[in-house]
Write a protein that binds this DNA or RNA. Structure first.
Lengths: 213, 213
DNA sequence: TACTTATTGCCATACACATTGTAGTTTACT
DNA sequence: AGTAAACTACAATGTGTATGGCAATAAGTA
């Protein structure tokens, strides 16, 4: 009963922000190296915690991974939803606002939560080896929640006559895809701020033409 | 000098379609389990070949992985480009043809080359641990080649006045994204043929509105 | 049939790593 | 200061697995 809020399980004697540290370190390593490559030694090093302590907080490497997924997905989705709300609640110039939204959504998100998105790649790859319930839970608290938030705004914009969206959920998927700064050259090529701007602007343009009137 | 064409390296004594078998088996296992999880024993089992033979053909697990990537990417890209050419060379009804193209591109491609696309996930996840040249080579013979082929057709359609595409490459990216049957629920939910149809049709509709006139 | 080369089975090495046990040490709270 | 809980270092166990070395065998070729 000291400050009870973080640790849902056993050890929480007051001196342990260890759990946070572990989750943070694990996120870093899992995101970079993937589940299988990641050793508990690496995590313990990254977290500044002994491996033994990790086993005191999380019974298993697998459970730790799932906990990391949930944690990271929650935070990233929260951040994204905040951006969505901030940009799409009071809309004046639809195109301009969508572009700004797209920029806010891609660039900084990718920067702050870079680790998270690397983790998403790992999850996709590992999908066949992660228990389905865990994947479902992740989808629910992460991507699906975000998409639903966006869809809700698109629906509202439709009601206000600013858009013509029959299937808000599909429209949300389309918008997210179109403003994504996908594939080009992968690592190495640091996309210019201008390149991102153009990509987003072009995506928004196509989206609007597709869903306007 | 027996039949020389497949094996670019050492052993090719005539009795060895082993190389093919190894690549096929390795693709299966790498795609399913990812690089790190995959053991050479598993590959040898899947290929019906002794592990020792694998080392006679490929010096390394890493090189084998790269060879598999190249092989698989080449075949998948070839197939996709064939579909692109087949559907977008003589266009009569643009929307109808694009929808058919989209269906041909997503559904059967994903079926026949399912392993390849699983492998792509693995590559994305492993990206940080694959030598950059190998990744570049893959991008070049795979995704970029496909995109360029599609872009060429879109350019041609623009010249014929059927489309209004300023940046064919970006348009190609957009089209590919919009007809992709992405994320929903992941594994488990077998997307209905109708669901796919609708998704593709909706994507094409947005694309056309964005790039028509 | 004799010869070359690929393939195989099996062994051996060596390491990496998950996981647990134990005993000592630190920390927070009273 | 004293106590209980949490943390740490360390060792130990067991397993998986990349990779190399051989000698025996099979297969294709002359």
């Amino acid at each position: 009963m000291t400050r009870g809020d973080t640790a849902p399980t056993r050890p929480r004697g007051g001196l342990a922000d260890k759990r946070r540290a572990i989750l943070a370190g694990a996120l870093t390593v899992f995101a970079r190296d993937g589940y299988t490559r990641t050793s508990l030694d690496a995590i313990s090093a990254a977290a500044g915690v002994s491996t033994r302590t990790i086993y005191n907080h999380f019974t298993d490497k697998a459970r730790l991974f799932q906990a990391v997924i949930q944690e990271s997905a929650t935070r990233a989705a929260d951040a994204q939803i905040a951006i969505i709300d901030r940009h799409l609640t009071k809309v004046v110039d639809l195109e301009a606002d969508l572009v700004e939204f797209g920029l806010a959504f891609t660039a900084p998100t990718a920067a702050e939560h870079a680790e998270h998105f690397a983790l998403v790649h790992q999850i996709n790859a590992e999908a066949g080896h992660i228990p389905q319930p865990a994947i479902d839970a992740w989808q629910e608290t992460g991507p699906l929640r975000v998409r639903r938030a966006l869809a809700a705004h698109l629906g509202r914009l439709t009601e206000r006559g600013l858009l013509e969206v029959a299937d808000p959920d599909r429209a949300a998927v389309h918008l997210l895809l179109l403003i994504s700064v996908a594939d080009p050259s992968y690592r190495g090529a640091v996309p210019t701020r201008e390149a991102i701007s153009e990509t987003v602007a072009a995506g928004v343009r196509v989206f609007l033409r597709g869903y306007l009137r």
